[in-house]
Write a protein that binds this DNA or RNA. Structure first.
Lengths: 292, 292
DNA sequence: GATTGAATGAAATATTTCTTGCAATTTGGT
DNA sequence: ACCAAATTGCAAGAAATATTTCATTCAATC
């Protein structure tokens, strides 16, 4: 029994119990972070009790989680844990056949920084409070950003009521907007900007509905048609603009609203999860087995 | 005072007291082993009392040795070839009133690095080629990741034919899968995993369809049910897991497929943009004014 | 050489991390 | 559907790791 940790983990992945698999899988996926973890931190992350983590390590043949870690030190001594080493590695491996990936990563990292800068602005706080308190929220996205809009809307729906993702198929969204006084609109859009986006923003503003626009840095009509404009970086050395960071921004926004709403959101979350569990089921739910 | 650990150590090496120098010197030389050490193990090795190690960490600006280690884990900031000024500025400005935002940013940046590491793996290349060449692509996403799936599918549709975003309302996706031989499936999912996700993956595999799963590091059923599993980091110090980086991964994937397909994609892109322009219109298009 | 202030280690205390025993739950086989 | 075996979480206890206090040492200044 002098296998490497990885071997043992894979073995556990096949033969282990349910919790064992969870732990093994997590460890396998997070080998780099393992040295920084403790038995209890792992336990929390995979939602298992500390005791189980300890026992798991023992079934693997180590004396404890600590013992496992110290073997890790020797076992895979060439695995870089330190972020700086990992970066260096990326850099090196990219040195020859560079596909521009490394440069893209630098840009995307810079983009993340920008997004977090946005999240510190006064405008941001204003939007967060509005999303927490206003009666009704509409969300819209165009072209490829439809997905981002849906992502945002779905998450917001988890933590509050009356969130509607506008269907833009026809342009039939206008009546939805005039129907209600106390509402706001969040839009996701990047070039080439859909004509609908501008129309929608203008109609909304005309109806007295505050408009928040998440877009790229090239959008020139946004400032006129929206109350707040959050411009996220989109050029990461890829063949076309990437609006991926809008998702990061969305999450930050959701997080802000969550904190604004306070603890009672938890109840709602739990309720929704339970409902989903009833209707569709989660992996591992014993109660929702479907008849064969 | 937002220098990197290495900088701080060097500083201590010059200005520190006798013990400080001993400790600093040791740490500098054993950076890679540091994650495995504890305050007392260091104390023993350097022949200093534990207390001194603790104090040393505090003079360096960390709360404890443990805190120092956790900074080591994703210390992006001290990589000069990455960001620098703005990042540092942001960290400084956040020094006091922190809401955990800065910590979250560090984690998310580290996450971006992980995603780019994934994009260099052999599995990745395999998926890219498959997506470029296979006859038919199905995309699926569950719960909040539906949006990401849509985002991915939309973009893929821009550069190739026969991409279908599966509608999961009923579970009626199964016939879609058996209908065709030469197809593959890309799934986005994070915990709590929808039961549908697992079922779909298994059905697909049973039908001989390669399955690629983009998920978080906690997914334990993925390895059994999917051909490739890309585990993206999701914990950024927010109240719940953020799957935002899946969007970044999506874009990288699209970019890869694009390059694989070669230049003739441009034609397709142009055609689609023109079509969209006709039907809905882009901002600034003079031809698509609607009659008032 | 005396005085002061910083630095240090030892011991006591606090905190974190791990293990163990036990009850409850789940699993797998009949 | 039932039962036995395995698995798991909880809670209490044990061990480890870290912090604080305090008396001592050391070094610099006068």
């Amino acid at each position: 029994m002098t296998d490497s940790l990885e071997k043992r983990l894979e073995n556990a992945l096949l033969n282990g119990s349910k919790s064992d698999k969870k732990i093994a899988n997590f460890m396998k996926g997070a080998l780099n972070d393992l040295p920084f973890e403790t038995a209890s931190s792992v336990a929390t992350k995979v939602k298992v009790s500390e005791a189980t983590v300890g026992r798991f390590c023992r079934t693997l043949g180590y004396a404890s989680f600590k013992d496992l870690k110290s073997h890790l030190q020797n076992d895979i001594a060439h695995n870089p844990w330190l972020m700086s080493d990992r970066l260096r590695e990326l850099q090196d491996s990219a040195a020859g056949d560079d596909t521009g990936l490394t440069r893209g990563m630098e840009l995307e990292i810079a983009g993340v920084v920008s997004v977090y800068e946005i999240a510190r602005s006064a405008e941001w706080q204003q939007v967060v409070e509005r999303l927490a308190n206003i009666h009704r929220v509409f969300v819209a996205g165009f072209q490829t950003e439809r997905g981002i809009a849906q992502y945002f809307a779905n998450q917001l729906q988890y933590i509050r009521d009356r969130v509607t993702l506008l269907d833009l198929s026809g342009g039939n969204f206008v009546e939805a907007l005039v129907s209600d006084g106390d509402a706001c609109l969040v839009m996701f859009e990047a070039r080439r900007y859909s004509r609908l986006a501008k129309v929608l923003a203008q109609e909304a503003q005309a109806a007295g509905i505050p408009v928040t626009l998440v877009t790229d840095v090239y959008c020139d009509w946004g400032f006129a048609a929206a109350d707040e404009v959050f411009a996220v970086p989109t050029q990461f050395n890829q063949f076309w603009d990437s609006t991926a960071l809008m998702a990061s921004l969305s999450n930050l926004m959701i997080n802000g609203v969550f904190k604004e709403l306070g603890p009672e959101v938890d109840l709602r979350l739990e309720k929704i999860a339970r409902l989903y569990g009833r209707v569709t089921g989660h992996v591992g739910d014993p109660l929702t087995q479907v008849a064969k």
